[in-house]
Design a binder for these strands. Structure first.
Length: 825
RNA sequence: GCCGAGGUGGCGGAACUGGCAGACGCGGCGGACUCAAAAUCCGCAGUCCGAAAGGGCGUAGGGGUUCGAUUCCCCUCCUCGGCACCA
């Protein structure tokens, strides 16, 4: 592009301030229901108000903003909201460490981050901003909790839970990563506590089944959720106790191996263990063993398989044989029944325990070549033919599963059943900065839900943060002491608060009705924006693949069943963006490789920052930060600025018709304009590959610069207009400014998204590569509508083709219309 | 161990359903402008052989299907992510 001058230097700070102010004043991005137009809901995972925006946010919100702005120009009514996931531990830790109140700390952070987001020019409907720490928000959560309680979807029980001693609170299973706390990375311990749970397991089957409907989700997220839910089909089988009443119930996925059972293993925590060993010679050894197992963390328990005999026996349900009962360290109390039938020949863990303690190994599933129980060194877990299995001998193991289960069911010793790895969601947190759980405890009436008319139960602000002794709520007398809604007597409030994943499980629905205070969701708004579709496009980090994305799916189904939503799935399409990497590691304070968005905006402007995040890699991949790459984006915008400024006086008026017929020099540019429309639209709408969309516009801009001297004013006008319109979603400020400079009276945000003109894409001649024996040897130019014979003749007539054929006859030819010619000699 | 994603120039990445590998950007080299530099503009650039014309080799490695393979199939290696005693 020539270094034409005119119109002054590109000053992003001034340009961006001007347009941000205008968008603000005109409420350009307010989402309004309009029955005549298609709704489109685009949402980015809302930020935790940690204090500052980081590059991951810039990337996340830039992606969302491109989609929101493009859909808006394409004629949709767009809902594109923002808010704050404002409850959580860092606020509380700041209070303990610096004395700032969590509320003040949170609100300060929100104010700062809001300012940063505004400087980036995202097209949010700021009137729908929410902060989850406000009673206006969490009161509805308390309502949902009460309704769930009434339906037995929320319940309290004493349970072994994950306890983080550093964070002083319980963690959900989803929040334990490799035996460590997801937040502080400290080791997680088991503790037995009275806890609130949500019955997510009641939805396990639907959560699993509906994964098949999530065609707009990345396969790996679907897979991770499928594995997390972990459905196993099998059987529940009773082994009657020997010499006493009752039975031991096990769960197995291999009922076909039941004739190979040589012992039964119980979890250390199994309630039957003390009963079985009390007063027996085995008691001391078993007590020592279970005590040791309980004291070890889950991580350490994986060290090796071990067990101890209880001295008690049960009876095989089909043969009546006496079976010894063991306690084993690898049996989990919270999966299945906490008891397993041990089949050493066909389960590796049982095999190891059997070999270690000289317990019998009995082969009952025989593969080819056959196994020898005496010499085998590992369990055979594959299929085979049943042997030594009574009337079932000779059956293939697959078939035997159902047959044996049926036989057990017939005698009342078992039934087919399904087990899930998924556990109920523990939602109690022994922390202050969260939604109070709306129940009270009365000495006379027990646990009593707070009546709906009395919510919100507001989190008191006048609390003391000592950092020790658990939740400050537990010592706040005014909060704690209340009266029982049932009997009017003295009662005390629940001091646990809800897991912060509660707030994020339904915020997407609240955006439809952010300012409604009489009901959680305004019927008209929620029907229009969410309806039965859900969020049209959701964008966020992969780290939430199981946590947030599973909880919100569950919560959506609960809200549907409670009558609040008509929705089965919250997010129709999901885009999981990669991390922002610099110098080979994720940007983080501890690594010292953070790039501050404020610095970037000050130095280059928001448009450059946005453009780089979108250009450097496709969204689902990690983005490798590169300071020089940012310079490159800045250079492109400056080139665009100079080009448009210098060209503006020479352009035909906006909307001027193209010359007809188009002179040949203009045809090329005109065609490229429409090909670019096609490419960018496809990339932005269908592929979500913004990097290639941007490169296409760059090519168009280069072509315009090259055609300045030859193309007609109207052709240049079309090219410049299309360039700016296509760039508007990516770099809205500079595009708006240049749109105005180039003589458009209206705002660029209101310009319609262009359509590619099929006629413009037609070419008269095409250049085809000619392959000889699979290698490209020449190129020939033929009429676009040339027939096969004509193309072949042209190829054979080519001098270079003749050279390479060297007189040999063409044995075979392949012609692909408009693509290539292939000759075989 | 199981599941998933990936491996393309010096770097980030293109190549939509098998059809001209390396678009676009960064970095590099050469040139123009300049007293000079920066900025800007123009050009070159996978690699090897060759003065050139041209040719050989090239998408982790090996094999296969095909007129034609980065793309499909089989095997191997490597990287990243998830799950990890789930009976």
């Amino acid at each position: 592009m020539a270094g034409q001058d005119g119109g002054g230097r590109y000053d992003p700070t001034a340009v961006e301030a001007k347009w941000q102010q205008r968008w603000d004043e005109t409420k350009a991005f307010a989402a309004r229901v309009d029955a005549d137009r298609q709704p489109y809901y685009v949402l980015e995972m809302f930020p935790y108000p940690s204090g500052r925006i980081h590059m991951g946010h810039v990337r996340n919100y830039s992606i969302g903003d491109v989609i929101a702005r493009q859909r808006r120009m394409a004629g949709y009514r767009v809902l594109h909201p923002i808010g704050w996931d404002a409850f959580g531990m860092p606020a509380e830790n700041a209070a303990i460490q610096h004395g700032a109140h969590p509320a003040a700390w949170t609100h300060d952070n929100i104010a700062h981050m809001r300012h940063q987001l505004r400087r980036l020019g995202f097209s949010y409907d700021w009137d729908r901003e929410i902060a989850t720490c406000e009673p206006r928000y969490y009161r509805w959560e308390q309502l949902f909790f009460l309704r769930m309680l009434a339906r037995d979807l929320a319940y309290k029980r004493r349970a072994l839970v994950n306890w983080c001693p550093r964070c002083n609170t319980v963690l959900a299973n989803e929040q334990v990563v490799n035996g460590q706390c997801w937040r502080c990375d400290g080791p997680v311990e088991d503790r037995e506590l009275e806890q609130w749970f949500f019955r997510i397991t009641a939805y396990a089957d639907e959560l699993l089944r509906d994964l098949d409907r999530l065609g707009g989700w990345p396969e790996r997220v679907v897979t991770m959720q499928r594995n997390w839910i972990g459905r196993s089909e099998g059987a529940r089988i009773d082994f009657p106790l020997d010499g006493r009443d009752g039975a031991l119930t096990v769960f197995t996925t291999r009922p076909d191996t039941i004739f190979g059972v040589t012992f039964v293993s119980l979890a250390a925590e199994h309630p039957l263990v003390p009963t079985l060993v009390r007063g027996t010679p085995a008691a001391a050894a078993v007590d020592a063993f279970t005590a040791r197992a309980r004291a070890t963390s889950r991580l350490e328990r994986t060290a090796g398989k071990d067990g101890v005999p209880t001295g008690a026996f049960c009876r095989h349900p089909l043969t009546g044989e006496r079976i010894p009962i063991w306690v084993a360290n690898f049996v989990l109390m919270d999966y299945g029944t906490g008891a397993v039938m041990a089949v050493p020949a066909h389960d590796e863990r049982d095999f190891q325990l059997a070999r270690a303690h000289d317990l019998p190994v009995r082969v009952v599933v025989q593969p080819d070549p056959p196994l020898d129980a005496a010499t085998m060194t590992e369990a055979w877990e594959g299929p085979g033919t049943l042997v030594a299995s009574g009337e079932f001998t000779g059956l293939p193991s697959d078939e035997a599963k159902a047959r044996i289960t049926a036989a057990l069911a017939a005698t009342g010793h078992g039934e087919a059943t399904v087990n899930y790895r998924l556990r109920d969601w523990g939602v109690s947190r022994q922390r202050y900065w969260g939604t109070p759980i709306p129940v009270v405890y009365c000495d006379a009436c027990g646990m009593v839900p707070v009546p709906e008319k009395d919510i919100p139960v507001v989190l008191p602000e006048d609390v003391a943060f000592t950092g020790t002794g658990g939740s400050p709520l537990a010592t706040h007398e005014a909060f704690l002491r209340t009266t029982c809604p049932t009997c009017g007597g003295p009662a005390r409030r629940e001091t646990d608060t809800m897991d912060t994943f509660m707030e994020s499980s339904w915020y997407f629905a609240r955006y439809t009705s952010a300012t409604t205070d009489d009901v959680p969701f305004d019927p008209a708004e929620v029907a229009y924006w969410l309806g039965q579709r859900g969020v049209d496009q959701y964008i966020g980090g992969i780290e939430h693949a199981v946590l947030h994305l599973l909880y919100s799916r569950f919560f959506t189904k609960v809200l549907r069943d409670l009558g609040f939503l008509q929705l089965d799935e919250p997010f129709r399409n999901l885009l999981t963006q990669g991390m922002v990497i610099k110098d080979g590691a994720k940007m983080s304070k501890s690594k010292g490789n953070v790039v501050d968005p404020d610095y970037l905006i000050d130095r280059y402007g928001a448009d450059t920052a946005r453009l780089f995040c979108l250009f450097a890699s496709p969204p689902e991949r990690d983005l490798d930060w590169n300071d020089q790459g940012v310079e490159g984006m800045s250079r492109f915008l400056q080139r665009l600025w100079r080009l448009t400024q210098s060209l503006a006086p020479r352009l035909a008026p906006a909307g001027a018709p193209l010359p007809s017929p188009l002179p040949p020099p203009d045809q090329e540019l005109h065609r490229l304009v429409h090909r670019t429309i096609q490419r960018v639209t496809d990339d932005v709408v269908d592929r979500l590959h913004f990097n290639t969309a941007i490169s296409a516009v760059m090519e168009l801009a280069t072509a315009i610069a090259g055609a300045v001297e030859t193309a007609r004013p109207a052709t240049l006008r079309e090219a410049v207009d299309v360039t700016l319109v296509l760039l508007a979603p990516f770099v809205p400020h500079i595009a708006s400014e240049l749109w105005e400079v180039s003589g458009h009276p209206g705002a660029l945000d209101d310009a319609p998204w262009p359509r590619a003109d099929a006629a413009a894409l037609v070419r008269e001649h095409v250049e085809l590569p000619v392959q000889i024996n699979g290698k490209v040897r020449a190129r020939v130019t033929v009429a676009a509508d040339a027939g096969e014979d004509e193309v072949l003749a042209a190829a054979l007539a080519d001098e270079r083709v003749q050279e390479h054929l060297d007189g040999r006859p063409v044995r075979k030819h392949v012609l692909v219309r408009g693509r290539m010619v292939s000759l075989v000699v």
